[in-house]
Amino acid sequence: MDIIVAALPMLVKGLQVTLYIFVIAIILGFLIGLVVALLRLAPLKILNWIAKVYVDAIRGTPFIVQLFFIYFGVNSLNIISLNSTTAGIITVAINAGAYFAEIIRAGIQSIDKGQTEAARSIGFTGTQAMRYVVLPQAFRRMLPTITNQSIISLKDTSLLSVIGIADLTQQGQIQASATFEAFKIWLVVGVIYFIIIYAITLIANFIERRVQVR
C-alpha cells in the first residue's frame, strides 16, 4: 500500500498529461471528422475522393505507424519541428478524425431524405437544412458510437509513451521499474484508466438521456 501511495502523485501527473492530450485531440479529431464527413457527402467528386483517401489511409494503417510517421518521419524532413506532445496530439486527432468522419457520415445518411426535403421546401438552403434539421438529429443517433470512438482514442493515448510522452502509461513504466512492484503499479494504472473511461460512459449516458428524441 505504501508503494502505491508513494507512486500515486507521479501517476496523477501522468494522468493529467493523458487527459490534456485526450481532450485537445478529441475536439480536433471531431472537427476533422465533421469536415471530412461533409466532404465525403459533398456534390463534388474530387472532394469525396480526398475524404475517402484520408479515411482509408488512416483506417488501413496501425496507430503506432501513424505516430512514428508523424513524430519521426515528418520531423526528419526538417521542415517543421514537432515536439512529442504536439506530434502525439496530432496523431490521435487525425486518427480519431478518420473514424469520426465515418460515424458522422453514416449518421447523416441515416436521416430520412424527407427531412432535408421538408426543410428545403420551406426555403432553407442546403447548409441551413444540414445545420438546423439534419445534423441535430444525426448527432443524437451518433452519440453511442462517438462515445465508443472517444474511449478507443483515450486508450490509444497510452501508445504515446513510446515517443517519450510522460502520460499515465509512461509514469506507470517509470514507477514499475523504480519500485520493482510491477503487479501493484500496473493494477493501479489499469484502475485509473478504468475509472476515467467509466466516467466518460456515465457522462455520455447522461447526455444521451437528455437529448433523446421523443
Binding site: D112, G114, Q115, E117, A118, A119, R120, S121, I122, G123, F124, T125, V133, P136, Q137, R140, V213, R214
Partner: peptide, 20 residues
C-alpha cells in the same frame, strides 16, 4: 430557388415533421 420556395408551401405524404 430558396426565395421562390418560401412562396410555395409543400405538404408530404409522410409529413416529414422535424422529430427533434
Amino acid at each position: 430557388i430558396n426565395k421562390v420556395r418560401q412562396e410555395v408551401g409543400m405538404v408530404f405524404q409522410h409529413f416529414n415533421l422535424f422529430p427533434h
